[in-house]
Amino acid sequence: MSDFQLTRTLDEHAADRALRADVLHGLTHSPKVLPPKWFYDARGSELFEEITRLPEYYPTRAEREILLARAQEIAVVSGARTLVELGSGSSEKTRHLIEAMPALDTYIPVDVSESALSGAAQTLLEEHPGLRVHALLADFTKPLHLPQSPGPRLVVFLGGTVGNLLPPERAVFLASVRAMLSPGDALLMGTDLVKDEDVLVAAYDDAQGVTAEFNKNVLSVIDRELGADFHTEDFVHVAVWNREQEWIEMRLRARSELVVKVRELDLLVPFAAGEEILTEVSAKFRQEGVRRELSAAGLELTHWWTDAAGRFALSLSVADGAEPAADSGRESEAETAA
């Protein structure tokens, strides 16, 4: 891959240190909590791919619908010559944008998985021989220093992952994205939208139990990596809609009183019967709320696209006082109607 370059900002022990810190903090916290990023070992990634194909799980299909319908418009509006993707994974959805950007020079995927970065780069370079790929092995929730590349840049954050951040974390994250942007650059962000509670809960508690297995996989990760003795059958998957906060909460509930040992941390973790570990928050958004959060970070919402059913949105924003490099000549239908 002659047009592939990888910059490592994480050392080989970074993930282990982070896991130890998160587990120690989360399992001694009241209430107990574990960050959702630890779902995603090889098995967890397979399970999530399976989730995206479930009939109940609409976000992936809804976002893909928008990308297919609006990729050309996004390309024109952004005028991007560099595409930066935060949490790029397999880069599968980003291909719709890359294919719509004939003038694209450089793709900068950012992820914590070196194998995912290398695999995605190989596929993209086979499909787009003239593309340059400069991957960053990095945690996108920390401040990033992007490599030199031609502007304008389009930073993309897809999949509704921003909803996994609590409001104070989102504020810090959006401010860090704003710090990356130069005049003419833009942010394209996916947000899942508030909708019927039954639809939302079903998306996180499917009839086949795939999401339940995905949720419990975090316990398997801790068992393997930290020598714990969690037994997944001791916990029940729970998904609830928090109406006040407008987010889904995924939890693991202990079936009975038990004690778990985490050998590598020399830690004993007692659970009361019915006690829960919060494993994921997935916030759902309204357009005005997204606009407010972007504005607080110094970003101006300029375009808002939704799927036909209004389930999911992609928003494009620019640094306050700046304009995208090019203009499509009209607002999107959803923005005009807003």
Rank of each mutant, 00 (worst) to 15 (best):
D327G: 10
G298E: 06
S315N: 11
W241D: 03
S78C: 14
D327C: 13
T336D: 01
L193F: 14
D3H: 14
G119F: 11
L252K: 07
L165G: 03
A207K: 12
V33A: 14
G227T: 05
P150A: 00
L193I: 09
T94K: 01
L278R: 08
E197I: 08
A138M: 08
L6W: 06
G329I: 04
E331H: 01
F230P: 14
A42S: 07
A116I: 10
V236M: 04
G151K: 00
A313K: 03
P270I: 06
P147A: 01
L10S: 05
D3C: 05
L67G: 02
P143E: 01
R95Y: 14
G151M: 08
L188E: 02
H237F: 12
K32V: 14
L252Q: 08
E276L: 12
G26S: 11
V156M: 07
A272T: 09
A15T: 12
A322Y: 11
A171I: 11
L10A: 04
E92K: 03
R64C: 05
Q287N: 02
E127L: 15
L294Q: 01
L67N: 01
L104N: 02
S78R: 00
E63M: 09
F4P: 07
F271N: 03
R311E: 13
V162Y: 10
E126T: 08
F4K: 00
L301S: 08
V133Y: 06
P129S: 02
H128W: 12
V238F: 11
S88L: 09
V238L: 15
L226V: 14
A100Y: 08
H25I: 07
L226D: 04
G130E: 03
E65N: 05
V290I: 15
R224C: 09
P168G: 00
E12R: 12
V199W: 08
S45E: 02
V318S: 02
A325Y: 13
T191M: 13
R224M: 08
